[in-house]
Design a protein around this nucleic acid. Sequence first.
DNA 1: GATATTTCGTTCATAATGTGAATATTTTAA
DNA 2: TTAAAATATTCACATTATGAACGAAATATC
Lengths: 159, 159
Amino acid sequence: MNEISASINEELLRYQAYRLQDLIAEMLKCCEGRKLYDSGKFALPYAELKCLMLFDGQRYLTVKGIAQKLEVAKSRVTKLVKGLIEKGLVEQIDDPKDARIKLISLTTAGQKKSEEIDAFQKELHRKILLQMDLGERKNMLSYLELLRSAMEAVKEDLV
Amino acid sequence: MNEISASINEELLRYQAYRLQDLIAEMLKCCEGRKLYDSGKFALPYAELKCLMLFDGQRYLTVKGIAQKLEVAKSRVTKLVKGLIEKGLVEQIDDPKDARIKLISLTTAGQKKSEEIDAFQKELHRKILLQMDLGERKNMLSYLELLRSAMEAVKEDLV
DNA sequence: GATATTTCGTTCATAATGTGAATATTTTAA
DNA sequence: TTAAAATATTCACATTATGAACGAAATATC
């Protein structure tokens, strides 16, 4: 009896694992499409767009700081910032207190564009939530949180 | 009264949208890390790995077919297949019925590697599910399905 | 104060992911 | 038979990213 129930359990688990894998893959694809859309809509390579969105209540950022937030190499940030400067969205000044450091900040155009992007992204997520009713939304977020925690826990063990 | 409740609702929705955006971003990051891990573990660029996993019960695939499944340009597939051939994981033969077409299939080594990857990925998702109890797993999958549908519905409208 | 070490940003070589136009070859339709 | 369509490849280009090497400036050590 114990063995049979264990076997059924294993079978269910296999099915659920398959389903989870599939759902995650489809969501990833969906997010990939959204990236492309955003990138086209705002005429920015997506990495530059993400970089722009880091200035959120923060007047100045450094290359190092941006690299940490984006979790990329500093050399990558140098290139991203160069692109954003060429597009007139950010500007660089030398830190008066430390000549090694360059302080990067949004221009007026950059500020405006970042607000546009932010508004668009918020609206997008709002629309997703509005596909559900109140109770579903609440539960969905809870279970998504649960999944995220589970994924991160497994990721920790992976190393 | 109606106005007040509507305003509270809007406030809640804003908070939930923020939370959803955050959760999705973290899950994306987690998946990105998993891609890197898989890629390193199986000594394959991730795109080649995905390509390898398409032979699942299917003996032969064509460049066009792979391009459709991966949703990339045919020229991309040409390069991926070239890489997999160099690694001895797939092989190409001319279709005897149509000289334009090249039939691509797994080598023995490719078959073996693809099974290894499959087993590893199944185990990974199994571990994620095992972070939860039976009821949580079932609900989580339902709500993830709901989210996926909502995301795709919104994406449809986006165009 | 002089020297060694660390920090910060840049440049360069390299790799992976991907598109789209042009091309060659073969098949199918007119 | 000729025109059109399908299949795969090549090439130029764009984006995302890393890591080593480097120069300049700040900090620690002697």
